[in-house]
């Protein structure tokens, strides 16, 4: 129950935050389960359940090759974009989890905290995320092959992803109304988490599913069983 005199901050970091975590957690688990449930060996033409060991090898190679910066031919062919992508995703995932302020909240509420990064390092990461995001926006505008497939939705997704960083940065440096930026930060963070299962941000988990599936396809059917050779991405 929410006490009648609870502040907006208390509500947002209390029941709303819990609700957010539940939607996010259940949402991403469901997305993975539904993905796996929708796989069909006859339609996809991949025997997921037969020769699975080859498929698993293919899946692991497919996922990890692309998780390593410059680990694939296409990452190497596009060094600037690759740098931006990795800096962006690293900052996006690493910063909020190991941020001192977030961990202080953890200690306050539950009496424990994770290892934390220094505030200045968090600042650098935030700035790096924002620069990468700006690069990605400019790239969308500048390159014809990207512009033609870019929609408003792509910008919205990017905005949802970077908004917690912008608002968090504003709150930290208290450029103007601290309370406003703090609340905006919490709300934007919660929007991002809720958006993950429902939008293209679902690639948070579906990246792994899709990569693993294609890895299995190559690992089982398209050559992976010929001399035990796995495709080089």
């Amino acid at each position: 129950m929410i006490p009648p005199d609870a502040t907006l901050y208390e509500i947002l970091t209390g029941p709303v935050l819990w609700g957010t975590f539940i939607i996010f957690g259940v949402g991403v688990v469901l997305r993975v389960l539904l993905y796996v449930k929708g796989l069909d060996w006859k339609i996809d033409r991949v025997t997921y359940g037969v020769n699975t060991s080859y498929g698993v090898k293919g899946a692991i190679k497919s996922v990890f090759s692309w998780l390593i910066p410059f680990g694939t031919r296409n990452w190497r062919a596009n060094p600037v974009m690759t740098t931006a992508v990795f800096v962006f995703h690293f900052g996006l995932l690493f910063t909020p989890v190991f941020l001192l302020a977030h961990n202080m909240m953890l200690t306050e509420r539950w009496g424990f905290s994770l290892w934390t990064i220094s505030e200045s390092f968090a600042d650098y990461l935030t700035i790096a995320v924002l620069i990468s995001a700006v690069y990605m926006v400019l790239r969308r505008i500048a390159l014809p092959e990207v512009r033609i497939i870019t929609t408003f939705y792509d910008y919205l997704i990017l905005l949802i992803a970077v908004a917690p960083f912008v608002t968090g940065f504003m709150a930290r440096y208290q450029f103007s109304d601290y309370q406003f930026w703090l609340l905006a930060h919490i709300i934007s963070g919660e929007i991002m988490l809720i958006a993950i299962p429902f939008t293209k941000l679902s690639h948070f988990v579906l990246f792994f599913c899709s990569r693993a599936q294609l890895g299995m396809d190559f690992g089982i059917k398209r050559g992976g069983m010929k001399g035990n050779k796995q495709l080089t991405w």
Binding site: G38, D44, N74, A77, M81, I149, S202, L206
Partner: peptide, 22 residues
């Protein structure tokens, strides 16, 4: 016939254009 593999591909395409040069 359009199951999760293709639906997911269509959904999570990030419109990055990194496929163009291939």
């Amino acid at each position: 016939t359009c199951k999760s593999r293709i639906r997911t591909w269509l959904e999570i395409c990030n419109h990055c254009g990194l496929c163009a040069d291939s």
